[in-house]
Design a protein around this nucleic acid. Sequence first.
RNA 1: GGGGAGGUACCAAAGUGGCCAACUGGGGCAGACUGUAAAUCUGCUGGCGUAUGCCUUCGUAGGUUCGAAUCCUGCCCUCCCCA
Length: 376
Amino acid sequence: MKYKIEQSLSDSKARAGTFSTGHGKINTPAFMPVGTLGSVKGINTRELKRDINSQILLSNTYHLYLRPGIDVIYRAGGLHEFINWDRPILTDSGGYQVFSLSENRKLTEEGAYFRSHIDGSSHMFTPENVVDIQRAIGADIIMAFDECTPYPCDYEYAAKSLDLTHQWLDRCVKRFNSTEPRYDYEQCMFPIVQGSVYDDLRRRSSEYVSEVASSGIAIGGLSVGEPTTLMYEMTDIVTDILPKAKPRYLMGVGTPVNILESIDIGVDMFDCVIPTRNGRNGMLFTKEGIINIKNEKWKDDFSPIEENGESYVDTYYSKAFLRHLTVSKEMLAGQIATHHNLSFYVWLVREARNRILQGNFKSWKERMCSKLNLRL
RNA sequence: GGGGAGGUACCAAAGUGGCCAACUGGGGCAGACUGUAAAUCUGCUGGCGUAUGCCUUCGUAGGUUCGAAUCCUGCCCUCCCCA
């Protein structure tokens, strides 16, 4: 796996690069749609590839392990075959579920003991078996097993948790290096920086993680409820320390503005459920601002969803029709919104890349950000 | 013609003397959502007001009572069964 920086700027930490994986190259900055269960909700892989032109998608170790089960995915020939997707896949390790399903799990030094949210059965996730599972899933990018700390999180806990995450990282690396891919392509693993919202912990983690031989590095534990300014601050601190020659993946981020601001401080990869989930709940992101399509004001607005949008659905359907579908809870509403939002997100990072390559990212970002938070 | 049931807010439907401006659904309006237990969740929904509050509401007109959506009387309307 190799990362090549094609352009960096003098007035910004933003970079444009390419990252090679077992299923081809990814241009960065890149956005990864979230397909937790092996499916990006509301859209199929054919459209995701041909219409949205997503370069990569994200899936989840914990969820796929519980259902359909890793044996099924292995017998299918790996997740790519199973879901019919021939581009890169990144799998989250289940570290986020340590946070989001905290009521159903117990942490020990050995690993995380989960009670299945589906059937209540008990499962132990360790750094070792989480690597093994991701090997079997066939992820191009495997994530190290970490603890995503909540916010707020007191210093003492954050420090202790960080030590655990680092120990787990060492075990993940050891396991990863002592195992082979299960399929005929290369896999790589990203370690994860933690440290909650504490400068010194973030620095310590960045330095620790930078020492690990890896193809890329993730920044985790952010966008969990902390003020956005803190998220940027922490990210800024981290990207100053991480090696320049590796892609940086800011996990779980974010809104269009979050993404542009984070690109500006040196982040290369993103994933977030916002375009899909918020889309299903009626929120549309456009170049002119945010639309809540459920609002009464769109009732008789027969203009296109987005006049100069990036997706065919934008001019194929009107706001009034999409509002009607959304209010009526028609399945098609979520599908259209998902299609639109993912197209927008993919366009946003692709355009950011173009601007970086052209050298005028900063001014473009400023202009975009002033619009992207507007409520239409 | 005889017998029976019932009329509650936008709709449906609880409530049968004070805890009722009135349960609960639906509908309507608004908001939330950041490595997805989410096509989910939250708030508001008679009027005025930031609010303790005030005003007008449970078919309709009266009455009983300190007090009525709830009890009594007249009237109007709806539905069911029998002829």
